[in-house]
């Protein structure tokens, strides 16, 4: 925003800050940015929905986005599940409600944390990775070269990444749900004196398909956000190593913020419609 002046000169020639002007300029900038993201996303979604497709590219991206994210998603989920169980135990014991640990853990993981943790980890690992790669291709003229070879970057680069993210995120979130619940179970049985069988039966009896579906719907939306933010910022990358680095940072930050914001919006919506 630094190119927009934050001060206006009055008649005496003295610089005075003008917050209204600054707010106006920022708001216009934000609207323009949202417009650009929407236009870009529309193009990529259109390419993903119509032939020609590049199945080879899609599978390659599924491997890169999905398979190599397994360790990071697994590790973060087990720790979150374990910490969640401990906190619920501490809180619950104040009301003598410790026995609800399995119920709250599985609810929290399936509806919120599985998807949010996976979304956030992939905003870092995948979104930044995509935008650094695309940014490097942009600044070394590989994107231009693609166009001259009659392959549109939307189809050959961006749509495969979007499709791969849409397919893999729900699978990763499902795994994160299972591993997160296991983290809670492990700490409850090992440290909090729960009976293993009872804990697991309570978990399975309590969780509903609605809880799981809610998390998986979020996963699909987060998948789109992560892939599109990565491609968008990479595509706009400015020349040089700093330009590419900046694109990676921007895509990570914007994907993470969008994941958290959209998570809240969707949680509200699901409560409204009773999902």
């Amino acid at each position: 925003m630094s190119e927009h002046s934050r001060t206006d000169r009055d008649d005496s020639g003295v610089s005075v800050p003008n917050p209204l002007r600054w707010i106006g300029v920022s708001a216009l900038g934000l609207f323009a940015e949202v417009g650009r993201v929407a236009r870009f996303s529309g193009g990529v979604i259109g390419a993903a929905l119509s032939p020609p497709w590049y199945p080879g590219e899609v599978f390659r991206q599924i491997g890169r986005i999905g398979f190599y994210s397994l360790p990071v998603v697994g590790l973060s989920s087990i720790f979150i599940g374990a910490a969640l169980a401990l906190n619920i135990y501490t809180g619950g014991s104040r009301y003598g409600a410790e026995q609800f640990v399995p119920n709250i853990v599985v609810l929290g993981i399936t509806r919120e944390l599985g998807a949010v943790i996976t979304g956030l980890m992939l905003a870092g690992r995948v979104s930044a990775g995509i935008s650094a790669e695309i940014g490097a291709m942009r600044v070394t003229e590989q994107i231009d070269a693609l166009k001259t070879l009659s392959a549109s970057p939307e189809r050959y680069l961006y749509a495969p990444r979007l499709i791969a993210a849409l397919v893999t995120l729900p699978i990763l979130v499902a795994l994160s749900d299972i591993i997160g619940v296991m983290g809670g179970w492990l700490v409850s049985v090992q440290a909090l004196g729960f009976d293993s069988t009872v804990y697991l039966r309570n978990t399975v009896d309590f969780v509903t398909w609605e809880d799981i579906t809610a998390g998986l719907i979020k996963a699909v939306v987060f998948g789109a956000v992560i892939a599109l933010m990565g491609c968008f910022h990479g595509d706009r990358s400015k020349a040089g190593a700093t330009g590419v680095g900046r694109a990676a940072t921007l895509s990570m930050v914007s994907a993470a913020v969008l994941v958290l914001a959209l998570n809240y919006v969707m949680s509200t919506l699901f409560t409204e419609i009773g999902l």
């Binding site: 070394t140 590989q142 070269a145 001259t148 070879l149 549109s152």
Partner: peptide
């Protein structure tokens, strides 16, 4: 696309897909 299919371009930097 039809136009580009009939044109070959050698970029100064090569621009190979790495």
């Amino acid at each position: 696309e039809e136009m580009r299919a009939r044109i070959g371009m050698l970029f100064q930097s090569g621009a190979l897909f790495d």
